[in-house]
């Protein structure tokens, strides 16, 4: 069993980026608050996804199975920050205008990628409950493999929007490549044996 305090601790830690954001915006610490909120929530959604994807390999390496009990909360927090990210963009950038939003999604490839990634995450958040796990049976696992393409799209979305300095998105991309590469490696070894 996972010690009792681990989940509440993760919950509190995962709220820290939001707290920092609120404090910085309210104290005038961000010159361009809307840009800051958009970038910050986007980055934390990606970090949340990477943490979620790191739990399975960590369990394999450590042999500590209870780690998987954190996956749902980690995934839902990633989705929470993704929602804030999309909402900021929709409300503050596109001024609540659905038509404007749709045009931007179709016209700007980097927005398209981000939007598709968000759409892929939606059913995963909806079916994250115990009830849906039971109802979907084996298909639940299959459905939740959508997190892989979603994470790849998020990294591409980030790479594509950066003006010139690709360092940050490349670092996240490398981390994702390691996490997905590990899965491919284990899957390949499993096939051979």
């Amino acid at each position: 069993m996972l010690p009792r305090w681990v989940k509440p601790l993760y919950f509190l830690l995962a709220l820290l980026p939001l707290l920092r954001l609120v404090v910085l915006v309210l104290t005038g610490g961000a010159v361009n608050p809307v840009e800051f909120i958009t970038h910050s929530t986007g980055t934390w959604a990606l970090i949340g996804l990477l943490v979620t994807l790191a739990l399975t390999p960590l369990r394999r390496l450590s042999g500590y199975a209870p780690l998987l009990r954190l996956r749902r909360m980690a995934g839902l927090f990633a989705f929470f920050y993704a929602c804030l990210h999309v909402l900021t963009y929709f409300v503050l950038d596109q001024s609540f205008d659905l038509q404007l939003l749709w045009r931007d999604v179709l016209k700007r490839p980097f927005v398209t990628l981000g939007f598709v990634a968000f759409v892929l995450l939606l059913p995963l958040a909806v079916t994250s409950t115990d009830g849906w796990m039971r109802r979907l049976k084996r298909n639940w696992g299959r459905l939740h493999r959508l997190v892989y393409p979603a994470a790849i799209l998020v990294v591409l979305h980030y790479l594509w929007l950066v003006k010139r300095d690709l360092t940050q998105p490349l670092v996240y991309g490398l981390l994702l490549a390691v996490l997905l590469g590990g899965r491919v490696y284990w899957w390949y070894r499993g096939m051979r044996s």
């Binding site: 010159v31 361009n32 001024s95 700007r108 980097f110 929007l161």
Partner: peptide
């Protein structure tokens, strides 16, 4: 090529 230039955010303003 990657973003619109039709609007801008004036620093200090809420909407574009």
């Amino acid at each position: 090529p990657r973003w619109s230039q039709a609007t801008e955010r004036r620093i200090g303003e809420f909407f574009r």
